[in-house]
Design a protein around this nucleic acid. Structure first.
Lengths: 127, 127
DNA sequence: TACATAATGTTATTTTATAACAATAAACTT
DNA sequence: AAGTTTATTGTTATAAAATAACATTATGTA
């Protein structure tokens, strides 16, 4: 278990506390009181946290969430459901999807590394 | 089968001819000789083409590819394998994945609309 | 034709992300 | 502990991606 540097910890904490995906510049404005002043400081922390599997990027939203799934520490693979009405983003337990996709990778002759799945629709509440 | 407007056709043609995903500003610089001068013209065409299912956006690359899969006209769902070495992007036949994911949606109580899957690794040639 | 709707053209701006380089801090080596 | 290397941080400036806002032109249709 890797320990986080000062900036990484600050950025991780704010993402981890949030109930929704946060954008890089939202993070920036929330950590300026803690001494992080410029975008590169945030983006560098984000990059490292992604590498470690502590957070994921929701590509379709340019936003970041804490990993909800201990598997991701290893697999760096993530799947999200995104509600088009209330914008709720939930990380899906990816063990089955992972299994399915790695067998799929075998079949097409690809060496599997990771994947990102974003799944749009209406959540239980909104539908 | 919807017919394309002038700008939509110009933008679609250049994406369709390309062997790799194209970025919006690359498209722009390639269509300036055809009279498309500003980003909004390109982005508007891209938006419509995506709506129609004629192209897809590769979110992790901010780039656009023509749909290789006639299903997408309907489903607006797409899956791509992306080689981290040669950068080759291939659209995966998504009928099985689609089926799998819509049953998954049922299980978690979500109304399925579409998904985007990006699948990273090393392709046949590079591995 | 007259009206409504969709598509286009244009300028400016916002949002997202990185390049480049200087300064510190942490880890490693002898 | 002193010196060396490596990683992290701080800072300024800029690049890259996307959209807002509004004027204009084209297209469909009653």
């Amino acid at each position: 278990m890797q320990t986080l540097t000062r900036n990484q910890q600050i950025v991780f904490d704010i993402i981890n506390k949030s109930s929704e995906p946060l954008k890089a510049y939202t993070i920036l404005s929330n950590v300026q009181k803690k001494g992080i002043k410029a975008p590169p400081q945030v983006y560098r922390a984000l990059d490292k946290l992604i590498e470690m599997g502590k957070i994921h990027k929701i590509e379709s939203k340019n936003a970041f969430v804490a990993c909800q799934n201990s598997n991701c520490k290893v697999s760096k693979a993530a799947a999200f459901s995104i509600c088009e009405s209330c914008e709720e983003v939930t990380e899906i337990d990816n063990s089955k999807i992972s299994k399915y996709l790695s067998s799929f990778a075998d079949k097409i002759g690809m060496k599997y590394k990771k994947y990102n799945l974003e799944f749009f629709g209406l959540c239980k509440k909104c539908k």
